[in-house]
Amino acid sequence: MTTLFIADLHLQADAPELTQAFLDYMTWRASGADTLYILGDLFESWIGDDAIGEFEQQVIDALRAYTRAGGHLYVMHGNRDFLLGGRFAELTGAVLLDDPALISLGDDAPLLLMHGDSLCTQDEEYMAFRAMTRDPQWQQQTLALPLEQRRQLADRMREGSGTANSSKSDDIMDVTPEAVDDIMLKCHVRTLLHGHTHRPDVHDFRLHDDEVAKRFVVGDWRWNEDIGWEVRQEGITLTLESFSLRELPY
């Protein structure tokens, strides 16, 4: 049994090479896995399930082919595609995950899954933005706007995020150790897997209760650097792996 975890692909219509890399990934790499978890930011932006065009349909078709072939697909919202909804899940055959989500690695070993943005508690400006955009009333009001207004809103949010992040220190935009400890102790887990920070690594550390813990950070996909990331589970073993986006079909 093989399970794959990916995050932060940031697919968008004006980056067709990356989209093709994802389609190749689904055909040549994910197809051999029993289960695929996408831990947020599959899309650079998602303005609603009623805004599915040719680009979005390509991605949906690839995911649907995976589930129709018997694969189990789970998708978590990210800070870019937090408006993914029930229609998307229906079209792809995916299950939308809560954040955080607790699953089993086997032998009753729990694994905590998160997108990761809620752990960046030092970034108070972003945490306020996150609280607003995850509010059901705000989402309902946003989805009631005409499509063009939603596109303009998404563009403004992306521009604002880029401007704000350019002036923030690396530490502020990374996870807060105390937030990691708190959520892992609350959920009674010793292994955490998340994305969001674009800093792929495996961290071994001790929690506040002195228990040994492990944090897997799955990296983002970068076409210009020809690198994609996944965490692969075989049995109860997790491995962080990188691969060439351009060589997936070969």
Rank of each mutant, 00 (worst) to 15 (best):
H10L: 05
L11A: 09
L11T: 05
A13C: 07
D14M: 03
P16N: 13
L18G: 11
A21W: 00
L23F: 09
L23G: 12
W28R: 13
S31Y: 08
S31C: 11
Y37H: 14
L39G: 10
D41Q: 13
D41N: 14
D41A: 13
S45V: 06
S45Q: 12
W46N: 08
I47C: 03
D50E: 11
I52L: 13
A65T: 13
Y66L: 02
T67R: 07
T67V: 13
A69T: 08
G70V: 13
G71R: 07
G78N: 08
N79M: 12
D81P: 08
D81N: 09
R87Y: 05
F88C: 03
A89T: 03
A89N: 10
D98I: 04
D99L: 06
P100A: 12
L102K: 14
I103D: 00
G106C: 01
P110A: 13
L113I: 10
G116I: 08
T121I: 00
D123G: 12
A128F: 04
F129R: 09
P136S: 06
W138T: 07
Q139M: 02
L145D: 00
L145H: 02
P146K: 07
L147M: 14
E148K: 06
Q149S: 13
R150F: 01
L153G: 00
L153Y: 09
S161L: 06
T163H: 15
T163L: 14
S166K: 15
D170Y: 07
D171W: 05
I172N: 11
E178F: 03
D182T: 14
I183W: 04
L185H: 01
K186W: 04
H188D: 15
H188F: 03
R190L: 14
T191E: 01
L193Y: 07
H196S: 00
R199L: 08
R199Q: 14
D201V: 02
V202L: 10
D204Y: 13
D204Q: 14
F205Y: 15
L207K: 09
V212H: 14
R215Q: 09
R215E: 06
V217E: 07
V218G: 10
G219V: 04
R222W: 11
W229T: 12
E241H: 10
S242N: 15
F243A: 07
